[in-house]
Design a binder for these strands. Structure first.
Lengths: 209, 209
DNA sequence: TTGAGGCTACCGAACGCTCGCTCGGTTCGA
DNA sequence: TCGAACCGAGCGAGCGTTCGGTAGCCTCAA
């Protein structure tokens, strides 16, 4: 995690060329999104990856380990990008909020299947992995809460309850993964800009009478 | 649906005393929320309702019929309340937006399990029920879009893309069902007021320089 | 140059178990 | 005497997982 933070500032958090996921996990993501974890059998998983069932068990010890690998990857990728966005913003709190929202929207648009699973399959994780996922989600939320809290205490934002407004913003951005369509009229970048605007207006100063 | 509209104006859409759901469905909601549709067996469903499996099949023809009944009930209840809220607001567009958001938040707070399933188990529905659910969801979304569109064309709101801002508001409100806690620091009514404020600022006029 | 040994990447078949669902009842208030 | 409301036992199918292999490749002493 300490090594991550050093490289975080250098990585391009806006780059979504291709997900560096092993082919087996890539097809598993698609299948889990369509049928859900419990609605997907190991046979389905195997044939989606052009593989036999024992072939699948050569790479992962269980079906559960596959979903865990996917969820861990999703949370780690989002966190890395969020840290890079924060580093790019520097000390300007308004800029921190803008880039954080942009980062959230881009991730939930370009990695929509991954983000969808992260939001949907929490209950399919066994206790240890579930606890880890919740911790990652809380850490992610805390990052935005801290930005809003700092902004409020410096008079940059109007956020009487940063936890509350952070949650509103996060669920707003998370929702993008449910309806985003790469072939749709709006690009991820355009949506990100719109949502950054919404966020700014939710906690912005200038519009108070 | 025509009869519904007549009684809609008269019903109290803010009343959430108790869900008039048969006991079997009530326990099924809890179980589905915890384990998901495919993660729940008919044996689990039956014992949660203090019943044998054949007893369960006396009331419903299949496991699928149970989830369908729950989903239909959820969408119908929200729609009835939304229509009543719209009727109460009258012709005032700003009031229509306020009450619509209030209605969405109250529903997703007080009926959080129901709302959570409606958002989560779409993929578990077989084609016919799924199509019906999607149609209900679209109709629900269109109601808010129409309010925003009318408001924009009358100069009450600033909403260059009503579809877009409606989706942002809806996912924001839908998210309430994921974290709301009746024992938490904020009541449903307080959250509803906050969110109505967020919505107003997202499309409000007065804060433009 | 060869071939034995070990490694990775798989596969066909099948294990024990649980699944959704049903059959043939029983109980009980009307 | 009838129908509504159940239940014990069990059906065939599908589940996650495992066993006992095999094919192909790399390494390295003889």
């Amino acid at each position: 995690m300490t090594g991550d933070q050093e490289t975080a500032a250098r990585m391009d958090w806006r780059d979504f060329d291709e997900d560096p996921l092993p082919p087996l996990l890539r097809t598993a993501v698609q299948t889990f999104v369509t049928h859900g974890y419990h609605g997907t059998s190991t046979r389905t998983l195997a044939s989606a990856a052009n593989m036999s069932v024992p072939g699948l068990y050569h790479h992962f010890p269980s079906k559960q380990a596959i979903i865990v690998a996917i969820m861990d990857h999703a949370m780690a990728d989002l966190w890395r990008r969020s840290e890079a966005a924060l580093a790019e913003a520097g000390a300007d709190l308004e800029q921190q909020l803008q880039l954080h929202i942009e980062c959230l929207v881009l991730f939930h648009a370009h990695r929509k299947e991954l983000a969808f699973l992260a939001a949907t399959e929490l209950r399919s994780l066994e206790p240890v992995a579930r606890a880890r996922h919740i911790a990652a989600r809380d850490r992610q939320e805390r990052m935005l809460v801290e930005i809003l809290r700092a902004g409020a205490s410096h008079g940059v934002f109007v956020a009487p309850d940063p936890r509350q407004s952070a949650r509103a913003m996060i669920t707003m951005c998370t929702g993008v993964s449910q309806w985003f369509d790469a072939a749709g009229p709006l690009s991820a970048v355009e949506i990100a800009a719109d949502y950054a605007g919404y966020a700014e207006r939710i906690v912005g100063r200038e519009h108070r009478p």
